[in-house]
Amino acid sequence: MKAWLPSLLRLALVVVLIAFVTNPGWFEPLLKPLTENNAPVIYNQGSLLTLTLLHLRTVLIATVAATIVAVALAILVTRPAGAEFLPLSRSLVNIGQTFPPVAVLALAVPAVGFGEKPTLIALFLYGLLPIFENALTGLTTLPANVVEAARGAGMTGWQRLVKIELPLSAPIILGGIRLSVVISLATATIGSTVAARTLGEVIIAGLLSNNLAFILQGGLIVAALAVLIYDGLSAIERYTGRRMGREAE
């Protein structure tokens, strides 16, 4: 495969995606064969652009919160003061992953009501795990000679953390964030079963009215967003990985 081909495909995907969410009407003839009985072809109970932006906002808030908490926890359990939490935190992460997102979502509803909040909670909890796991891997597999050298140079614990350990773990932590974002983008659609305004609304409307065009447009926008964000974050990861001399995974 030619080296420029993937970049070109990605650029085309960006252009099509932006055109679709801003001017869905242009694509009406393409989706028309998927509908029956003159059903609407393009989702008509809200603009696709607004829903896409709300979807991205939900994922962004949840991921930022999950990153802060997960990295802080990983730092805590890798310090001498928190070392006794390390084995337990590992088992908790393992247990946490067995909770299906639908269950988390539905169980959060009685506590916080319908809408965006239960979705944020489910995405936050689900996003925590991959980031925490990768941050732990990053912080516990640092090259020993580098850490020793920093200690020998008289750096304090805080200086070592900020100047050596975190930058060296950055590519691996980014890998966790990438996984978490891709999972969250898809999981956020389930949030619409509890009335969160995400692209899931379009898919569910399609399921309820048996409108394949709705399901396809909702699903494809989410998939395109996931592919693009995955690629973007992979590129950042490779860049920081090259700078730090460590490749993630």
Binding site: L185, A186, T189, L212, I215, G218, G219, A223, A226, V227
Partner: peptide, 17 residues
């Protein structure tokens, strides 16, 4: 990998047809 990025509710729906 790409299949994994399709949200589950959409993939379920798309297979109906």
């Amino acid at each position: 990998n790409i299949i994994q990025t399709i949200p589950s509710i959409a993939l379920f729906g798309l297979l109906i047809a």
